[in-house]
Design a protein around this nucleic acid. Structure first.
Lengths: 184, 184
DNA sequence: CTTATATCAGTGCCACTGAAATTT
DNA sequence: CAAATTTCAGTGTCACTGATATAA
């Protein structure tokens, strides 16, 4: 595994020597504090790692999206429309796909519409619905943004394919256990 | 914020059959759109999975922290102090540990201090620094909150230990590649 | 003087709540 | 009528920028 059982607990925080993995440190802390529940330290390691990696990947990706004036959330919305055959989707469906609150997708589409990247239309099949459609400018921009993200390998260059595949698998089990599956 | 490019192309929306994994769908989308760069689909699968799992775990944990009036960020700050031998840490060091902006840790400690959970003190070793120290109420609360999170296994019950360990390992490689190591 | 630390003021995005309007 | 969809108003947390005060 990782350098899991390496020192950590035996040293005061302040005295720097070699680089130390903060996740290892946290797991060691939990292991010594709750010695009768060793599986909890492992869970803490996972949740802490997920939070940190999400933060790192988000920062890396948003650094590249900044010149486009896009956040990762707004990029995802545009990308969802770009991958859609019709080129337009009801806002509610977009919100469920992106797992965001209905009011949040309204705000996101508001900002994209003000910039002329998407256009609101009434769904011909159901007058209650509004659909968002990519404009030409929106399609161009999401294409360029995607090329940029491709160039940086989505912040994951240098990671072995086997590791990437095992991550998709392991994270998939967590999602499955959380019920994140097959909802629309 | 997830599910970059789910289905749309292969099936009409309405006809539900078996549960479908949105991550699989997204990867398939990228694979067909960019057939000459198959490794990119894998990377999209990883970043999408990380974002989604982070969202799920955060929601699960914050549901339990809500009765305490704590967010995960504020819980982490309290927990960091609880695990610290001195019981007090300079704000700047806390910010680096938690990987948040200096102004953010100031705000977080502000709110905790207003609630009487921590107390600010001047660092005797360096007058520029302010340290945050857990109060008795803060120590009690973080203890109860931790017990609650233990009870729900940090949102990771039902996941095999080998899977958890492989996640810590794989995510560790991503962090290492991103330079998330050995910075104080 | 230069640097480090923390704070403050202001902005923006996002998540959520509760209510309202519209349509099915 | 009830239910679904979207919008709107308001709140709170968090992240960031830029400027300032204080101490090393």
């Amino acid at each position: 595994m990782n350098g899991i059982g390496a020192l950590e607990t035996s040293r005061p925080i302040g005295d720097r020597t070699d680089p130390i993995d903060p996740i290892d440190e946290a797991q060691a802390q939990w292991r010594t504090r709750y010695p009768d529940e060793p599986e909890q330290a492992l869970r803490v390691g996972v949740i802490t790692s997920v939070m940190r990696v999400q933060q790192l990947l988000l920062a890396r990706v948003e650094l590249e999206l900044r010149p486009f004036g896009l956040t990762f959330a707004s990029y995802e919305a545009l990308q969802l429309l770009a991958f859609c055959r019709r080129g337009a989707l009801p806002l509610g469906l977009m919100g469920r796909r992106l797992m965001v609150h209905p009011a949040t997708i309204t705000n996101t589409i508001d900002r994209l519409e003000q910039r002329g990247l998407v256009r609101r239309e009434v769904d011909p099949e159901d007058g209650r619905r509004r659909t968002a459609r990519l404009t030409d400018e929106g399609r161009t921009m999401v294409g360029e943004a995607t090329r940029t993200l491709h160039d940086i390998g989505f912040g994951l260059v240098g990671i072995d394919e086997a590791v990437l595949a095992s991550l998709v698998d392991g994270l998939g089990r967590v999602r499955m256990e959380a019920g994140d599956w097959g909802r629309d």
